[in-house]
């Protein structure tokens, strides 16, 4: 058990003992990562904030059922990933603009976002476009990319959260990276020119 995980266990014991304020320690520790995951996955800051709140409420309500079989962070990430899946599935009823449709509508503008000079605003737009590419990826690819690249989780943590083997993690991660590079290669290559 890592030091961080041991700290979490002690904090959870305090929450179990009735110290509700101890839960604030856990919220402070993980809120940036949970909000970050939600905001990027849902592509909406307000939706992301709401989802993150719901995730911490679910975690608090389910804390009695948490017996420390895995790290608290892995358990919380599982709630996060599942909650965002649910939100996206509910939202999928609404027709969302596809990547191809955006290219068709914006023409060269979208491409220019990824290839223009790198001042602050353009870098921001560059990031937005790349996040859009990310959002268009299959769910399993998007999840593993975010957890690895944005959250900085290692292979073992990814396996625990996603419920698969280490080999499956490596394989899925590789396919996800190839997919996002393939979809954005056109822009990224032009930027190199």
């Amino acid at each position: 058990m890592t030091e961080s995980s041991a700290d979490d266990t002690l904090t959870i014991q305090r929450v179990h003992a009735g110290e509700k304020d101890a839960f604030a320690t856990l919220v402070r520790k993980y809120e940036v990562r949970v909000r970050g995951y939600c905001m990027t996955t849902l592509r909406d800051a307000a939706l992301g904030e709401d989802a993150a709140q719901e995730i911490f409420l679910k975690a608090y309500q389910g804390l009695k059922a948490f017996h420390g079989d895995s790290a608290f962070s892995s358990w919380l990430y599982r709630i996060t990933v599942n909650h965002c899946r649910d939100v996206l599935r509910k939202a999928s009823r609404r027709k969302s603009e596809s990547w191809d449709a955006m290219l068709e509508r914006e023409g060269e503008t979208a491409e220019a976002r990824l290839t223009g000079s790198a001042d602050a605003s353009e870098r921001f737009e560059h990031a937005e476009t790349l996040r859009r590419v990310l959002a268009e990826l299959p769910e399993s690819h998007r999840e593993i990319l975010l957890l690895r690249e944005s959250q900085g989780l290692n292979y073992e943590e990814l396996a625990s959260i996603l419920g698969c083997s280490l080999d499956a993690v490596k394989s899925r991660l590789k396919r996800a990276r190839q997919e996002i590079l393939s979809r954005s290669r056109h822009f990224l290559l032009q930027e190199d020119v």
Partner: peptide, 10 residues
Amino acid sequence: TLGPASLPEP
């Protein structure tokens, strides 16, 4: 772009 720098402020 996807890295930890993209995370929000506390």
